[in-house]
């Protein structure tokens, strides 16, 4: 990777944008690596959590927003909890994911994760609550390759009464779909 810095492409702009949007003091990270040290999913990431902050600090917008890391973050908040500089790293991941979606930069290799989020929210939008069967159905349609992976537990779930096929529609489901409309990303 090469980072070019000149008067037209100033590095600080991306950091400022992220800071403004999230209120997270990205500059305050001094790169001690404690977030990476304690991250349960770091072994799967393309950039370590501290490197994601670093990319923001030095203005590598594309690298940060197209990373797989932001999608692999499990939001366990271990990093933010232990950060000596109180940088809200997990919360920063939320903002970067949001920006990545807005700009169409979400990494296609983690499509499973983004599709899951979509299916989940569609179910909420439609019914006001999660209907697990229907959410699962939509997700499996979107990601057919995952169709078989949970089949092993499905029959047992049915037996145990854990898969209800009747979605519960709340009374205010229209209000919910209005919330979705008003909160649509720009």
């Amino acid at each position: 990777m090469k980072i070019k810095i000149n008067l037209n492409e100033r590095s600080s702009d991306f950091a400022k944008e992220v800071e403004k949007r999230s209120g997270i003091k990205v500059k305050e990270c001094y790169q001690c690596g404690k977030c990476t040290a304690g991250c349960p999913v770091a072994y799967e990431m393309d950039y370590m959590p501290n490197q994601i902050i670093r990319l923001v600090q030095i203005g590598a917008r594309r690298e940060a927003l197209t990373s797989r890391t932001i999608w692999l973050c499990a939001s366990c908040i271990t990093c933010s909890t232990r950060c000596p500089k109180e940088v809200m790293i997990a919360e920063l991941m939320d903002v970067l994911r949001e920006m990545a979606l807005e700009e169409g930069l979400a990494n296609p290799s983690e499509k499973n994760i983004t599709s899951f989020h979509e299916s989940f929210l569609n179910s909420v939008k439609k019914h006001g609550r999660i209907s697990e069967v229907w959410m699962l159905n939509e997700y499996k349609m979107k990601r057919p390759k995952t169709a078989l992976q949970d089949l092993a537990v499905a029959p047992q779930m049915v037996v145990k009464g854990k898969l209800s096929f009747v979605p519960h529609n709340i009374k205010g489901k229209d209000a919910i779909s209005r919330i979705f409309k008003k909160c649509k990303p720009k």
């Binding site: 990777m1 090469k2 980072i3 070019k4 810095i5 670093r54 030095i58």
Partner: peptide, 12 residues
């Protein structure tokens, strides 16, 4: 260079 991101840096 920025070894924290493992990248080259070129500044005008």
């Amino acid at each position: 260079a920025d070894t924290l991101t493992g990248s080259q840096v070129e500044i005008e």
